[in-house]
Design a protein around this nucleic acid. Sequence first.
DNA 1: GGCCAGGGCATCT
DNA 2: AGATGCCATGGC
Length: 311
Amino acid sequence: MNRYGKDGGTVIELAVPLEFSFTECLIFLERSDQELLHQTRQGYLYKLIKIGQELVLLKIGSTGTSLQIEFPIKTPSKDAQATAIKYVKEWFDLDKNLRAFYETASKDKMLKKVAEEYAGLRVVGIPDLFEAITWAIMGQQINLKFAYTLKQRFVQEYGEHVDYDGQSFWLFPEYETIADLSVEHLRKLQFTTRKAEYIIGIAHSMRSGSLSKNKLIQMESIEKIHRGLTSLRGIGDWTADYVLMKCFRHQDAFPIADVGLHLAMQKQLGLDRKPAIEEIKDRSKDWIGWRGYATFYLWRSLYDESNKSRL
DNA sequence: GGCCAGGGCATCT
DNA sequence: AGATGCCATGGC
């Protein structure tokens, strides 16, 4: 449903499911002050996306029962508006019914508390495959703070941006751009040689067409997508599961070796050390079907406003 | 200064 | 298949 805002710009109302909290999603999105790919201001979320060749700035607000999408710079065509709506739905996983997850969580010792505390939180996605894979590779085996530093440099060096109302809004670099780089270019940004090789290699695979989101989506099972991803250099089980969760919206994706998951379980269970893989397998048996959501909620339990600065 | 961080790979059994 | 060693780089 469209109407016109005070300034004459188009406002799109987007109905949201019952189990959705824009506020909770915003808290997640505000977890790093180094983030360039979206911004929040006065309860509104701003994000630049590319639709065809057009750069479109989205301003997203919430009434509680619906989301309102505006286009501060320029209202795009009807087709582009539809694409933007699709993007927002995918970003916040709005087509998913979380009732079964909350049902599962309510009966689970570890999940009960976090599910209640962060009710309405959804797995905030990364719809772009190149971004999802590259961001995961950047985050391999380093602390998140430094991962964000790498991303910040990468985006500022190779991404497009537009300036509006005193702020800059950035796009994640495109694989076409990165495919032309050599390892030395990324080494300058403090990427390790290995990560530089992985990321440029992924960009090559995407430019050649051998790797694409469409190709993977069309595979007949999650397991095949997983194998398709891990067949690429630089993508192991953890990265594949992360990408399945954030890009392919697989609600059961389970990066079981994830250090953040281990820390969160340690915290929730009050253990004096991180749980072993076998213990994690055992304790997560009842989550099957929703292990991706369980993981995301547990990750959420690791940070809050007070410790944002020392992520 | 040492341990750790949202792992992956090569190379063994 | 599963275990082990190695790789890099900054945070704290």
